[in-house]
Amino acid sequence: MPKKMMIVDPERCTGCRLCEQVCSVKHNGVSNPSLARIHVVKWDNEGFYLPMRCQHCRDAPCMRSCPVNALYRDEELDSVRINHDICIGCKMCVSACPFGAMGWNPKQGRVFKCDLCHGDPQCVRFCDMKAVDYVETSKMQASRMREAAENYAELMRKHGR
């Protein structure tokens, strides 16, 4: 299976927060963005929207801080996942994660985080702007380069070199 990664593009995000809603429904069966694993951080007075979600870090602070190794790397999806059978709910990962990707569900007494929906992230599926996208790692760099090149070309055209 090709390795894919989640990327965000705040320029595309329209701030509709559908990703948050579908995430909470998919994982918890309820609509409640505070249970979502993705958060659209919005600056309403600047119109800047940045979806924040788990980066599935290689050297993940949450994994490092877990005292019982309940967080593990799923090699198939290259994601960081929780084994709830092991998790003791100490919340060290909540404090450790710099991205705010670790949430705490007081009702269940357990932490939660993005699991990439087992390879079919619902946030990506529902985002028609593709402000969050799940792309093949190998193509990622190339597409970003192309974007940059196009912007550059545009500037050159505009300023007549």
Partner: peptide
């Protein structure tokens, strides 16, 4: 000692 137990779990 809890720290080292954590280290053991995390390998």
């Amino acid at each position: 000692i809890g720290l080292f137990m954590g280290a053991m779990w995390r390998q």
